[in-house]
Amino acid sequence: MADFMYLFWNKDGKSKMEKASPEEIQQIMKKWMGWMDALKKSGNLKDGGAPLEMTGQVVHGGKKSVTDGPYAEAKDVVGGYIIVSAKNIQEAVELSKGCPILEGDGMVEVRPVLKM
């Protein structure tokens, strides 16, 4: 088994929730909880990860200049991550396909964690 980090990318740095009704927001959350729960029950969820604020600061290069981030012009922003354990990248990719973020226009980036 190997570890993979799932990075959850939101379009425009915002999930499309500004117009959603409370019920719709709850339904989306319920789908996420269901998906995470299934990963946990199947033993694939190695680390439940964390949600990230959509804003932050970036420190650059030798001058250590600081800008508002994540990236000044980036449209897509990572909204959170988890770590999944899977046989190989194929399985990790398959597992990621159930992620509710894909029902909107978000995406999941699957990255193998380097083995020691």
Binding site: M17, I25, M29, P51, G80
Partner: peptide, 17 residues
């Protein structure tokens, strides 16, 4: 404010329960 609060709840609870 309510919309923000619900979104924040969703973002947090989906990871933390």
């Amino acid at each position: 404010v309510v919309q923000d609060t619900l979104c924040r709840a969703m973002e947090t609870w989906k990871f933390r329960g």
